[in-house]
């Protein structure tokens, strides 16, 4: 059963298990820690390790994108909100802890089902993706980012534009939701100023000349 493993496979295995351990440990900590700031930082660690695994699988563009988007943007957004809102660190009370056994039971059942599907199925995952006859590439393959770009800007152009529209809508939505006109700050209202008297008028003052 034991086949000789190449040094590359051994290294790959060690790296995979190291990153997988970090991902699972950090994700579990995100769920259980009390302090939301710690949770954000642990989530960043989990996303960072996942980016490493993405790169290991040859998806360099998405791995780097994950670091830029999650570590660079979303984590900062989370930290901003967590630190802006004065969140008390509350201890779990007994009444809340009564949900724990049920949640653990449901989660382990789900995990067992997923693992059973993956491990016990007679057709392995490798066979599922194995195509009967892989089409021969008509041109030499380029690097991951270029190939992805070729695909996005041809076959998935409409979906890509819709994704951009979605992001624009999200931005507008966030601004509309959080924007408020404050009454307690002084602010110039030109229309009101002008309407106050007929004599008042706006003058364009030339530089160094005065009025």
């Amino acid at each position: 059963m034991l086949v000789a493993l190449s040094p590359f496979q051994l290294t790959e295995g060690l790296v995979f298990f190291a990153f997988a351990f970090v991902i699972v440990a950090c994700a579990l900590s995100v769920v259980v820690v009390r302090n939301p700031v710690h949770a954000v930082l642990l989530m960043v660690a989990a996303f960072f390790s996942s980016a490493a695994l993405f790169i290991m699988q040859g998806a360099e563009f998405l791995g780097l994108l994950l670091i830029i988007v999650y570590v660079g943007a979303i984590a900062v957004l989370f930290l901003f909100v967590v630190m802006m809102l004065d969140i008390r660190i509350v201890a779990t009370t007994k009444s809340r802890r009564k949900h724990v056994p049920l949640a653990l039971a449901v989660a382990s059942l789900l995990l067992a089902e997923l693992a059973a599907v993956v491990l016990l199925d007679t057709t392995s995952a490798e066979q599922m993706v194995a195509k009967p006859s892989p089409p021969a590439p008509t041109r030499p393959l380029l690097d991951n980012t270029t190939e992805l770009g070729l695909l996005i800007y041809s076959d998935y152009l409409v979906v890509f534009e819709i994704a951009g529209l979605l992001l624009l809508l999200a931005m507008l939505g966030a601004i509309v939701l959080t924007h408020r006109t404050r009454d307690d700050v002084a602010r110039q209202s030109i229309a009101e100023q002008k309407a106050r008297s007929e004599k008042a008028r706006l003058v364009k003052v030339a530089s160094k000349d005065g009025v």
């Binding site: 496979q9 051994l10 995979f16 997988a20 997923l114 993956v118 491990l119 392995s124 995952a125 490798e126």
Partner: peptide, 12 residues
């Protein structure tokens, strides 16, 4: 447990 295959990633 090796080599790392698709099954590993799906389980993770």
């Amino acid at each position: 447990l090796l080599p790392v295959s698709l099954t590993h990633y799906v389980l993770l």
